[in-house]
Amino acid sequence: MLRFLVRRTLGAVVILLFISAFTFFLFFAIPHDPALLSCGKNCTPDNLRTIHHNLGLDHPVPVQYYHYMVRIFTGHRFSTGNCPAPCFGYSFANSEPVWPTLMDRLPTTLSLALGAMVVFLLFGLGTGMLAAWKRGTTVDKVFSSASLVLSSMQIYFVGPIVLALLVYNNHILDQPKYVPFTDNPLSWFNGLLIPWCVLSILFTANYTRMSRSTMIEQLQEEHVRTARAKGMSSAYVFFRYAWRGSLIPIVTILGIDLGSLLGGAMITEYTFQLAGLGRLAIDSVTKTDLPMLMGVMLFSAALIVLFNILVDAAYAFIDPRVRLS
């Protein structure tokens, strides 16, 4: 297990290096000078040169990349202030330090993603398993077709409709907003209820379909038949024998979904005006804010890679055959 984790972590480092280099060089492929942003309206060539120098933009791109990567681990003293490790630099747009901004946005995204996960796992796996249990009945048909319809509902379509119905027209719920859990758990819950549900619609539908099909597949496994031949009750066979096997594909997809949700549920955060990582990513792209963009990209990528490692570790808990190899 330890060797496995070490190997996976090394692999993750390589992946992150690759992603960072790719993002960095891609940014400089855009024909746009980030210094113009700080330079303001009355920009003289002298000013621009100074800013270029201050931002380190007068070095060749590979050198800039090298400096950037080294500073993450060593920290750096900029003209704007001291930046301790992990140092991702300062925003070109508003001179805010990148890492504290990320940490500031993270709780919003974390609350949104994990809360939505609870909702879509509960409903998705629940309805999927019920549909598999009642395979071929009306219940199954209703759930299966409903999930097909819902999985084609996009957030930017459902979100505004829900907002219009529940918030603006009927005032049933408040405008979604993020209140830290530690400040007021109830406000935290109320503020995120609509985003959770809207974000979950798509995911619930996908998880319903997936858990239904993997359960049905598992129920046809020979070892499940053996369990029935031993006289185990249908419920026992269903929940002990078939369910266990159906977890593996579900956990795989969950790892990917959760990683990308934590990296920023961009559309959802944008739709509900929540200041999370996804929102930050969009803003930094539109403002050509390289340090912020790099920070968000690397952080999201690290989360996705981390969740993939967690998924692999979870396999070992689910399937003893993985444990030993």
Binding site: E221, E222, H223, R228, A229, K230, Y241, I318, P320
Partner: peptide
């Protein structure tokens, strides 16, 4: 109630017929 008690069955491929979990 009968299965596994009064009547039991042995299947062909023990690798797939026993649960890996």
């Amino acid at each position: 109630k009968l299965r596994g008690d009064k009547v039991a069955m042995i299947f062909q491929d023990s690798l797939t017929a026993l649960s890996p979990y």
